[in-house]
Nucleic acid binder design. Structure first.
Lengths: 215, 215
DNA sequence: GTCTATACATGGATAGAC
DNA sequence: GTCTATCCATGTATAGAC
């Protein structure tokens, strides 16, 4: 980025160190010293490269989100049915959770409350996820009876937000979180069932939906 | 509690001050000094009454959760249908959100990552909510075709976790959060539709569910 | 670009007067 | 129970040598 190989290296080390620190120490402990230690660089370099801790956190948020979304983009693009989406979501969740790649978003979201600089950066990071999820939902809902009533834009945000919330919940009650995810999967499968109903039943569902739904 | 009226008063002031501070400053800024200032008492009293900041946070978590759940217990107990549940959930969400009564849980959940003392306290606080939600879900799902497949225990936890996640998301993208909530409501109404299907369609749904569901 | 040293602020926690 | 004063650790940020 800056021309010097070592310089770019330090920047990257700091970004990755920030994500690690956020994931396993939390926003409250994500100080310049802690991050620098995790990155294996000198503390003063935080300020040389990023100006302030807040700026570093914001930059790390972008960096981390881009990295993670890019990793799953192809897989998500291949999803065409609700059943596939559920299976893909489970795998994705497992991989991201164990790697702490959702945890840092949760911590930044929590920190955004007071550090104004963090709010837009975190929103941008989450937007990368929601944009991807939204695309999948549009595709999957297109030929479902749910398609004309469900809102992919809102749903994508709900999915992302819930993901983050459940990840945090997992920190204080792992068993409860597992059970929550299983229940949601069951529910999603249940929605998939609607796609496979016979035409008679579909018409009945559609009819009721028209009377109740607002779309 | 301790016999002295003024003493109990200070304790309470500190507990409420903690919740306020968590809600509008976040866990990272919830120091003994900040809380004491918000409570209008001397900073040293935090340590006299609670021993440490962590203990204060844990106590405040219990205090706040009990208070909020108690406030909604009656209303939740009156819910018997999915449609009612959705409407009740919306009202509850509105009231809790504007008052910052969910925000403190999110912040404690974020803080629990490093302060071991916080994890059990936060889990206990959330349990008060999930227990209530669970009861409602059991009642509501009893005479729904979903009843024999959905898991109220897991769902209650999913609902609580998602609530918290979306509340945090709201902090960085208010419009997106509103849209997410609307999408979820639509989805819930859609589930309610299943309860009102004619017997023919219900049988079709049940049949498909038996083949797909795992319960 | 990176390091050491250092300033200055904030926060946890305690001692001791009242 | 409450207040003032204070100690000490941690953290942000900068200056200046290399």
């Amino acid at each position: 980025m800056t021309g010097s190989a070592t310089g770019a290296d330090t920047r990257t080390k700091l970004l990755e160190g920030t994500l690690r620190t956020l994931a396993d120490q939390g926003i409250a402990k994500a100080s310049a010293r802690a991050v620098a230690a995790s990155a294996g660089v000198n503390q003063a370099l935080v300020f040389y490269h990023f100006g302030s801790v807040d700026e570093l956190l914001a930059a790390a948020c972008r960096h981390g989100a881009e990295q993670r979304v890019a990793r799953h983009r192809e897989r998500l693009a291949a999803v065409t049915t609700l059943a596939e989406l559920v299976r893909c979501g489970r795998e994705l969740h497992e991989e991201e959770r164990t790697g702490g790649h959702v945890a840092f978003l949760a911590q930044l979201l929590a920190g955004a409350r007071t550090q104004p600089r963090l709010a837009p950066a975190t929103a941008a990071g989450l937007d990368l996820w929601t944009a991807e999820i939204e695309k999948v939902l549009v595709r999957v809902l297109a030929d479902s009876p749910l398609g004309e009533f469900a809102d992919p834009v809102g749903l994508a945000r709900a999915v992302a937000g819930s993901f983050v919330g459940l990840e945090m919940y997992e920190g204080v009650d792992p068993d409860g979180a597992v059970r929550a995810f299983e229940a949601l999967e069951q529910l999603a499968e249940l929605a998939g069932v609607l796609d496979e109903l016979g035409p008679v039943a579909q018409r009945a569902v559609r009819h009721r939906l028209r009377r109740t739904g607002k779309a």
